[in-house]
Each structure stands twice: as C-alpha cells, then as structure tokens.
C-alpha cells in the first residue's frame, strides 16, 4: 500500500461518502416518518389544533419562546406549558388575554396580541396537543421546561 493519495481518490471518497450517507438519511427518514404515529399525538390532531398552529405561527410566538426546545430563548418553554399551568387551557387563555398593552415597567413582557376568542381556543388547544407529544425521556427534564 505504498502509494500517494491521489486527488481522484479524495474525490471518490467525497462523492461516495456523500451519496452513501444521503441514502442512510433518506432511509432513516422513511422509518421515522412511518413510526411517528406512535409518538406524535396525531390521534388528538383536530381542526382546532391545526387552526391553533396557524395562530401560533401568525403571531411569531417562536420569536421569544421555545417549543420543544427550539426557538428563541427569551421566554419560557411552551412544549409543557399545559402541564405547568395545571393542565388547564383556561389558564393559558387567561394569561395570553391578560397581557398589558404597554408592557411591564423594566421587565420583559409578552405583547398583547388582541386574539379573538376562537383564536385563543385554538392556540390553547394547540399547546395542549404539543404537550401530548411523547418526547424521548419525557423531555423537558421538569415542569419548569
């Protein structure tokens, strides 16, 4: 094996390796997607939850909060907010509705989004659905998120 490592070989490792691991990723993706119904709480997926996700997106909630650990780190994790708020969608709705328009002096505050009652119902239901997703090791580690 006394030979110099040629550019051709380096190229082949690149193409071979890239295609190989792309195929591995695609294969694993198929398996993951097929197996998802066991964990993704899709049995509780309703029209209302879907509408709630739109409300969540329309107000860019991810710009401050994390959801299952992804998002901004400015405000609390919401993947388990339903549990944290005593499994009450009413409490969630009350919190969102009660945000002061001009904020709280000197402190971080959530904006007042002026959501309609339907929107409030929907977004609370969405957060309840996300809380029902069976994450590995039941992440987040505790109720504080």
């Amino acid at each position: 094996m006394r030979e110099t490592f040629t550019k051709g070989m380096a190229r082949n490792i690149y193409y071979g390796g890239a295609v190989f691991f792309l195929l591995v990723l695609i294969g694993l993706t198929f398996d993951t997607v097929k197996g998802l119904p066991k964990t993704d709480n899709s049995e509780n997926m309703t029209e209302l939850v879907a509408a709630g996700k739109r409300v969540w997106e329309r107000n860019d909630c991810i710009g401050c909060h994390t959801l299952l650990g992804e998002g901004a780190y400015f405000a609390p994790e919401l993947g388990n907010v339903y549990t944290r708020f005593g499994e009450s969608t009413e409490a969630i709705k009350g919190f969102i509705k009660g945000r002061p328009v001009d904020g709280i002096k000197g402190r971080r505050s959530m904006p007042q989004f002026n959501l309609t009652d339907e929107e409030l119902d929907a977004v609370a239901e969405f957060l309840k659905y996300v809380d029902g997703v069976k994450t590995a090791r039941d992440w987040p580690p505790n109720v504080q998120g």
């Binding site: 094996m1 006394r2 030979e3 110099t4 490592f5 070989m9 380096a10 490792i13």
Partner: peptide, 14 residues
C-alpha cells in the same frame, strides 16, 4: 509532508 497527510496515510485514515 505529503507522505504524512494527505499522503497514503489518508486512505488509511478513512
């Protein structure tokens, strides 16, 4: 230098 990296060592490195 090419003998060490990326010399023939590299395929073995792989």
């Amino acid at each position: 230098e090419p003998e060490l990296l990326p010399g023939d060592l590299a395929i073995w490195l792989f």
